[in-house]
Design a protein around this nucleic acid. Sequence first.
DNA 1: TCTGGGGTCCTAGGACCC
DNA 2: TCTGGGGTCCTAGGACCC
Length: 424
Amino acid sequence: MPRVLALVDCNNFYASCELVFAPKLEGHPIVVLSNNDGCIVARNSESKKLGIPLGAPWHKVKKTTRRHGVQAFSSNSALYGDMSARVMNILTSFTPTIEIYSIDEAFMDLTGAPVNSLTEYGRRICQTVHQGTGIPVSVGIASTKTLAKVANRIAKKNPETGGVLNLEKVKLHLDSLLTQISVGDIWGVGRRWSKKLHSAGITNGRELRDADTRWIRNQFNVVLERTVLELRGQPCIELEFAPPKKQTIMCSRSFGNRITHQDALREAVCNYTTIATAKMRKQKSCTQAVTVFIQTSLLNKKEPQYSNSCTVPLGKPCNDTGELIHHALGGLNSIYKPGFRYARAGVILLDLVPQDVEQGTLFPSTEEYASSPLMNTLDDINQKHGRGKLRFAAEGFAHKWQMKQNHKSPAYTTKWDELPKAGD
DNA sequence: TCTGGGGTCCTAGGACCC
DNA sequence: TCTGGGGTCCTAGGACCC
């Protein structure tokens, strides 16, 4: 039976989330900013029409966008995460064979569904998600993930499709559709390879599909070769219904203001360790090494630059926040140099292993690496009452380095005291 | 003054071993 | 002049994704 996949992708996801709770702004241009109000990461269609570029540094475009009446929102990840979960829930009610690919995308396996009613089915998905969450989505249907991505893209760009395109049904036009897609817009082709492909005379999706696979493999790698095969309708990338555990977990932030004292850096590193470690315990893993890194602003060429990192091997798997803070601070101490204005720091937990398996020992002891009651209690309380309710003293309270969020919307769906009020 | 954050996979080359 | 050959493991860096 030929495989049938759908890619469901939320339109302008972050911007759409904000609009759900600010319906008055419907029809007006809005943008969503990255952490620290750094740059623009999402725009609604009105902002796109104004020509506001994705990725633009906010401080550079703030004035002009204001003139156009653009409303800006700071990143509100709690809101987006919660809205995402609602969307995915609805998709799962259509079929359990779904791979949640990112915060705003999911692949669905529709193999076996009658081909002629697939477009209709896609429409129902759009309507149901929109009704249930207020989020608009597009659906691309095809035989491989890469082609489903193509279909989704075309559906999104062409309103006359109603947001749904079944590539199997428009096969006659496939060549012309692929010709219209620039090679850099194909899933799996980034900026670097797009450039290299262009200089080899391959400029659009059709030319990539028809390229010689051996040549692609030699000049690029096996990953791009798979992309070519997928464009031909030959599945190479499987669906993953159960997401694998993360192999590394990172937490890093740019600071709202430059840091010049080690005390503040220590505080930040403690906080990041706490966040990363809680994430790690949530997926029931232990780490075997922790990396700390610090950087001055790499973009500011006028300032003296310094960046360094330190990896501390742990000897045995660990998931205890206190212990990891100790190691992270030790690492920080060995790389810290006074006299610089630090812009960013981060903590990475490496070589993650399952919590209750001690690797390489003859007699694994399960108790030793299970979360301690203390860590469990800590996680429970912070889960219920919000992160930072219960914390290590080293995390501090002042947090002068905390990121800028001057335009943040409330946590409408995840905090009781920030629920939207009727009449607002 | 101010430019995000968090991941994965692949490959080449060096270290090391026999 | 001329200094083996083959295998494995690890790491850093480069590419990609959202």
